[in-house]
Design a binder for these strands. Structure first.
Lengths: 200, 200
DNA sequence: GCCCCTAACTAATACTATTAGTTTTATTGT
DNA sequence: ACAATAAAACTAATAGTATTAGTTAGGGGC
């Protein structure tokens, strides 16, 4: 019936739009099919299952996030890069909160396709950390510390867990990133503070 | 038939058990009803909806977490209390991961009943922070920093996002908490016990 | 022993994802 | 231009989800 040349890619793209518009909670195969003027079963010609579709959506979300992170740290280093990265992460979580939810919703990042994306998540972070004179093992640890802070802050902020105190959340975030920045400084030997002339 | 005197409390308790055993993903009204040897519709004599039930379960989970936190910091102060609190939080997230998932699953922490619990979450944290000589506003900020670190770490660890590097996660966690501890020290005026509220 | 409240039931509705099998359409080869 | 083929979209059906309305029956208070 009036076939419109739907493809896996167009389905994923439509799903991303629908989620950003109506929210992740509201999303369903039926709603997506209706949006594409197609019966629900027809979607299965292009995707294997809802789970796989969500993995594609999550992959797309991660790619966008990583792109913004790389954009943010381009030409920067040291603390400037660190703050820019963190701000970009938080901005994404706020401005694309429904898409960010999809990322968070995965119970396990076991899927091989997602591990690829997972690796790209770490790339800009390691790029920032590379300016601090850390050992490789320290980089592994501090990468986790930074992701914990950024992810934890975004999560709590989104779920409303940070709403119960009359304190500016932007300021809280700055303090958190400052805390990591100082910790990194100390871990790196304390000799690389000016953020521009230092290299390892 | 053969009515067994089910109550809201026993339903919630059974739901908690079922979730801890079979996982949050597997949970459903039907499964819970089967576990209680009752038809699904019968549950609605005791609870209003799945959403309300999950709120009760989340409340129970939070109460248990807060209890463990308070247990952990009892008789301690300063850094010792801080590390004990963080360890207790992470231990709960690991040992009761399915229950922890319920807490994380709330899209919005708006419900008035949950706000009560939310307040109790902060209590042990503020108790720990009270030894650092912070202003009230600083306590509000650092409470968020600490929750972000603990929550973010637990989340990433659970979703497998921290699995991709050959680095000990315990050590990563220690580094993260150490980072916060040092940040607090600095914010409180360099004295972990009786700081006089020096500003940064 | 009777009454009443309500726990538990049956039945039905409206969703959800998913599969099997069928029709229709576009493209490709001759 | 025409037949063959691959696949896009369909219909129909299944099994799962939460939820509501209306009915039956059991236990506690009188």
């Amino acid at each position: 019936m009036a076939r419109q040349g739907l493809s896996k890619d167009s389905v994923v793209r439509a799903a991303v739009c629908l989620i950003e518009e109506k929210g992740f909670q509201q999303f369903s195969m039926g709603k997506l099919a209706a949006r594409l003027h197609v019966k629900t079963a027809s979607l299965y010609n292009h995707i294997e299952s809802l789970e796989k579709l969500l993995e594609c959506i999550g992959g797309e979300a991660v790619r966008r996030l990583v792109w913004l992170e790389n954009q943010a740290i381009a030409g920067k280093r040291g603390e400037e890069a660190l703050f820019a990265l963190a701000e970009a992460y938080r901005a994404f979580a706020r401005e694309h909160c429904e898409l960010y939810r999809v990322i968070m919703a995965f119970p396990k990042w076991n899927n091989p396709a997602l591990e690829q994306e997972a690796g790209e998540i770490v790339t800009p972070i390691l790029k920032v950390l590379s300016g601090y004179g850390l050992t490789e093992m320290q980089q592994f640890h501090w990468q986790r510390v930074l992701r914990a802070v950024m992810g934890g802050f975004a999560f709590h902020e989104q779920s409303g867990g940070f709403a119960h105190f009359p304190a500016d959340r932007d300021e809280s975030f700055r303090i958190a990133v400052r805390c990591v920045a100082d910790g990194l400084q100390r871990a790196g030997g304390g000799d690389g503070e000016d953020g521009k002339g230092n290299f390892i």
